[in-house]
Design a protein around this nucleic acid. Structure first.
Lengths: 141, 141
DNA sequence: CCGCTAGGTTGTAAAATGCAACTCTAGGAA
DNA sequence: TTCCTAGAGTTGCATTTTACAACCTAGCGG
């Protein structure tokens, strides 16, 4: 198998993964679909982040992020604070309720993943994580 | 980093990938968005496949596949034939026009991928492909 | 003090999807 | 043979997610 074939295989597998994931949202966790989950977990991870940061992380439109963050806020999972230190924009923070729901959902997802990779060695899993990280880090433009 | 942390990293990276991909469809290839592309390429790869096969491959609803295949047919990229050998159901085939468009789109996507993994060695890329394959092959239920 | 611009929101339209109800027909049972 | 069941596909309908565009708002630099 030459490099081109390998690349084609990567392409194929990424496509399958991407397509399958589209439906998963509500199936996995009723209250926190993939979209909301990813937002919430990013806000939690990147301390003091603003909506713009999510725009660049996920390469989404401002409006999309605005709506989703708005939804999270309306549900009491996220709080917007106007931090004068950051000048313009609002700093986002996960509320205790948000954190609770997030941990619950994370556990569910983690369990699912753990089952899928049950037969993988630690080394194999670590290599996979590193490769994904590297792939995602590459600039698309 | 213990196994749990590694798993969390995998989770995180897969999420980022999944979220980013959602928007890509029309951006990458005007005529053949990700959804149509994946259908067409699967029909091309799995010779004599039926709609049901796509349902199981991508874990989509029958209706979704029906509409998408219908769209491809209306655009003259796919032909449905009622093969008596298969009993019920219709066997799908990519038309010459479909194949042409498919190859064109594949080239575009391949180029994009190639750029992203330009710094990867053959071994690294092959390992990535294998890991993805393994991940996708795991039964989710 | 004033315009510029980054950050965010809202209106609108499109795509993708799932569920449910329906049709059609091949294949087996009686 | 006839009938009934189950597999394959289609269509109606609602929902979610998204992009684009127009808009608003308030810091920041001059």
């Amino acid at each position: 198998m030459d490099r081109e074939e390998i690349a084609a295989a990567v392409q194929r597998e990424l496509t399958v993964f991407a397509r399958r994931v589209r439906g998963v949202p509500q199936r996995l966790h009723q209250e926190l679909p993939l979209v909301a989950y990813s937002m919430l977990s990013s806000i939690d991870a990147a301390d003091g982040c603003r909506s713009v940061d999510l725009v660049t992380l996920y390469r989404l439109d401002k409006s999309t992020v605005s709506r989703q963050v708005g939804d999270l806020e309306r549900r009491g999972l996220v709080a917007k604070t106007t931090d004068p230190a950051h000048g313009r924009g609002q700093v986002l923070a996960v509320t205790p309720a948000g954190r609770a729901l997030l941990h619950e959902a994370a556990a569910t997802r983690q369990a699912e993943l753990t089952r899928r990779v049950a037969t993988w060695s630690d080394e194999e899993l670590a290599a996979f994580a590193a490769a994904l990280q590297r792939y995602n880090a590459a600039e698309p433009d």
